[in-house]
Simulated scan of single mutants.
Amino acid sequence: MKFGHFLTFILSLGMIGGAHGNASTIQNVKEIRDTAKSFLESHYSAAQESTDSSRVKITVGKVDPRLRLAKCDQPLTGFIPQGTDLKGNSVLGVRCVGAVSWHIYVPVAVQIYQPTVVFKRPLRKGQVISAKDLAIEPIEISRFRVVTLNRKEEIVGSILKQNARVGQPATSAMACMVCKGDKLAVIAQNSAFSVSMEGEALEDGHYGETVRVKNANSKRIIRGTVVASRKVSVSLMLSAQK
């Protein structure tokens, strides 16, 4: 369904028929739209407060002014329909729980802008990504189904697994910071000491991901967290003192 098209479904009996009824018995359409907007602003306010630079733009679509719903004797409330992802073009529910109950869907558009890592120049599959290849730009991430990156460190030093075009948002899935078959530096550490050893990556991995690694000396297979290009970290448990 396209945003802006009439999209109001009556899901319970609350209609006042045809020309019957007057302004005092008919629900004001503006109040329905205002309820939808207030609900969305409250829903996203916490997310905006948790980051210094994310920005959310909310647009509430039209509700047919010819709609004849019984005026609610209680404050209207908004709700998110089950299975609805409030990003891009979507719908929001507005309900009346009063003497006469009803609920409808209102078309909405939610655009989420966030500083995002993008490619400054085209790169080919197999190239190593450097900091000069990247930039941070505000991008409407609600248009993308994938999780984008907001720090260059999460992908710098990785090898591209696909071509990248100018302006394309960077994602972890596009590259491997540790690639299968790579010779790695494995840092095993705890609060008391750390030791470095050589290993071989048994699978691809990106920043922060856990991968299987084979110890070059013992041939033992361990799991480590990718912390940098061709580098993983393994936590060692301290032995209990007797």
Rank of each mutant, 00 (worst) to 15 (best):
G4N: 03
L7D: 14
T25R: 11
Q27T: 03
K30D: 11
R33S: 09
R33K: 15
D34H: 10
A36M: 05
E41C: 05
E41T: 08
S45Y: 02
E49M: 10
I58K: 08
I58L: 01
V63Y: 06
L69P: 10
P81V: 03
T84K: 04
N89M: 05
H103P: 04
V110K: 05
V110W: 05
I112S: 07
Y113H: 09
T116A: 01
F119W: 01
F119A: 12
F119H: 05
R124D: 15
Q127W: 07
I129N: 00
S130P: 00
D133K: 05
L134M: 02
L149A: 04
K152V: 08
E154L: 00
L160H: 02
K161S: 07
K161D: 11
G167P: 02
Q168P: 03
A173L: 08
A173T: 11
C176V: 01
C176I: 03
C176L: 05
A185P: 00
Q189R: 14
S191Y: 11
V195R: 09
E200G: 01
L202G: 01
L202D: 07
H206G: 11
Y207I: 00
G208R: 07
R212C: 06
K214S: 08
A216M: 07
S218G: 00
G224W: 02
V227R: 13
L238S: 13
